[in-house]
Amino acid sequence: MIPARFDYHRPDSVAAAVGLLQQHGDEARVVAGGHSLIPMMKLRMAAPAHLVDLQGIAALRGIEAGDRIRIGAMVTQSEMLAHAGLAEAAPILAEAARQIADPQVRNLGTVGGNVANGDPGNDLPALMLCLDATFTLEGPEGVREVAARGFYEAPYVTAREEEEILTAVGFDRPARGFAYEKQKRKIGDYATAAAAVLIGAEGGRVVSASVAMTNLADVPVFSAAAGEVLLGSDCGEDAVAAAVDAMQGDIDPVEDNRGPVEFKRHVAGVILARAIARAWSRV
């Protein structure tokens, strides 16, 4: 497992990084933590001639945890997990980050890398859909904001242009009821099924609900329908069952070593029901 040869660049600004992407076109790839890309390169399923490392760009770091939360693309999953402000403002992030890979991988794996590369197995994309996050993209044409819910097009294909860099994710402080529930075979595995749920409540009734699922289609799945059926309910048995039914209409799992489609659908339902119950217990 030896990667092909490449030239290495470590720009110190986003503009310089974008410049390198413009210069080398599709021969260049951006690397953040590298824990998705490097294994692909070691298997020679990816062989970029130029690698643009973002670690030298200070502007891509930093976490703001006010009413609006902003996380720089190069913030690692470990940093996200340990951040006191985030734990208070959006505890669902830590709950999800804990379930990604293992400590060493989380030390290098970044928020930006996890959301930008479009691997349907990654956990943070569904979380971003659930949070209704926006991604900040910077490219030759300048800066633009893209809704996470419109970002994922196909496996490894996103709304990010080849010469753009995802610099940050941002979202409003989420509702109090939260859960990220994930079933996996072992530490280090992708989800067999995972569910991100946010619920806001008033007077014992759901006033806002957001549901997204990981690794149950070729892109992360935001299930608007599942959220909608929870609205106005008390998250009782019928409401949960209806939400699960609605979610089933939005996912499209494929068979792999984790199991056949029927199993994945079943587990997706169980996991979502558990996530809703846990989120509801926290509202």
Binding site: Y8, R10, V31, I38, P39, S78, N107, L108
Partner: peptide, 24 residues
Amino acid sequence: SHCGACTVDMDGKSVKACTIFAAQ
């Protein structure tokens, strides 16, 4: 990056040295 036999400490963090390029 599953087994951790290559674990080293880099800038105060545990990392897996099989999934880091020299240049990084």
